Simulated scan of single mutants.
Amino acid sequence: MGTSYWRGELWLGPDYGLVQGQLGHTTAHAHYAHQLIIAVGSPVTVELDGVRHSGHCLLIPALQRHAMVQAPDPAFSLYAEPLRIAASDLQRCVEGVEASLPKLQAALEQCPRQPIADPRVERALQALDATLEGKVAATQLAAEAHVSLSQLERLFSRDVGLSVRRLVLWRRLRLAMALVLQGQSMTQAAHGAGFADSAHCSRTLKALFGVSAGQALKTLNPRLLA
């Protein structure tokens, strides 16, 4: 099974993330990010919807349930925000790229970004990010988007792939991780991202990534990218 702790480097960009090092095993989970695992040495084994797959390049689309089963050697794990980067573009933009953090980061920076086609969704997302530190009311997001609450939920289901509530949790977690990488404690980061407490933040991390905050952050050397 290997270790439950992730060890190595974590680089976090505005709409992507990179991990290089020993990838610990996880419980089954599904997160709102495309994930591409690149194994330089021995192949990695991942369970996708209950079926095990092994390989040197494994793509896990957003919201697909999976678990890290075995990663014998250090590997790379790339994460991309699905609203901005398509899964096919994530895989295509790193093909043939040298497996190093600087080279993979450069490739991700050049990866094409998808525009948000519906301006109502764009307005709701901007309002959401502006209110993450406090209470986020779906009715207020709907008002900012100039739609009814039921319309907003339908728009999010169509364009985002998540309910308003689940997207709020995802964005809170992303903000909390950025605050931790800026040097804040887990408690400070949790409050700064609008979580009730650090326990709530840790439960969300466990639910979305299958690992605890201690497993994911304490043994990774972080770097926040501009």
Results as ranks from 00 to 15, higher is better:
2 G>K: 13
3 T>D: 12
3 T>P: 06
5 Y>M: 09
7 R>L: 07
8 G>D: 06
10 L>S: 13
10 L>F: 01
11 W>Q: 10
11 W>S: 07
11 W>F: 00
11 W>D: 12
11 W>P: 01
19 V>Y: 08
22 Q>I: 06
23 L>H: 07
29 H>A: 00
29 H>W: 01
29 H>I: 05
30 A>R: 04
32 Y>F: 12
32 Y>V: 07
34 H>Y: 09
35 Q>D: 12
35 Q>N: 12
36 L>H: 15
37 I>L: 09
43 P>I: 03
44 V>D: 02
45 T>S: 13
50 G>Q: 13
51 V>Q: 15
51 V>S: 14
51 V>A: 14
52 R>E: 14
56 H>A: 05
63 L>T: 02
64 Q>H: 15
65 R>L: 04
66 H>I: 02
70 Q>F: 05
71 A>D: 09
71 A>K: 02
72 P>C: 01
72 P>D: 09
73 D>M: 05
76 F>S: 11
78 L>V: 08
79 Y>L: 06
79 Y>A: 09
81 E>M: 00
81 E>K: 04
82 P>F: 02
82 P>K: 08
83 L>V: 04
85 I>W: 03
86 A>F: 03
86 A>M: 01
95 E>T: 07
95 E>A: 15
96 G>E: 06
105 Q>K: 14
107 A>N: 08
107 A>D: 15
108 L>D: 04
110 Q>E: 14
112 P>K: 02
113 R>Y: 06
113 R>W: 09
117 A>N: 13
117 A>P: 02
117 A>H: 15
119 P>V: 04
119 P>A: 06
121 V>C: 10
121 V>N: 09
121 V>P: 04
123 R>T: 10
124 A>F: 03
124 A>I: 07
124 A>R: 14
125 L>K: 12
128 L>F: 13
128 L>S: 13
129 D>P: 04
130 A>C: 04
131 T>F: 04
132 L>M: 01
132 L>G: 00
134 G>T: 06
135 K>P: 01
138 A>F: 01
138 A>E: 15
138 A>Y: 00
139 T>M: 12
140 Q>P: 00
141 L>Q: 11
143 A>H: 11
144 E>A: 14
145 A>S: 02
145 A>E: 03
148 S>N: 01
148 S>D: 06
148 S>F: 00
149 L>A: 14
151 Q>Y: 04
151 Q>A: 09
155 L>P: 14
156 F>Q: 08
158 R>K: 15
159 D>K: 08
159 D>P: 11
160 V>H: 01
161 G>Q: 07
162 L>N: 12
163 S>P: 07
167 L>S: 05
168 V>P: 13
169 L>S: 12
170 W>M: 07
173 L>K: 12
175 L>Q: 14
176 A>Y: 07
177 M>H: 08
182 Q>Y: 01
183 G>C: 01
184 Q>Y: 00
184 Q>A: 07
187 T>M: 02
188 Q>N: 06
190 A>Y: 13
192 G>N: 00
194 G>A: 07
195 F>A: 02
195 F>D: 00
196 A>P: 04
198 S>I: 02
199 A>H: 10
201 C>P: 12
202 S>N: 15
203 R>F: 13
208 L>F: 15
209 F>K: 03
211 V>G: 03
212 S>T: 15
213 A>V: 00
213 A>K: 10
214 G>N: 13
215 Q>M: 04
215 Q>W: 08
216 A>F: 11
217 L>E: 06
219 T>M: 03
220 L>R: 15
221 N>M: 05
221 N>W: 10
225 L>N: 11
226 A>R: 05
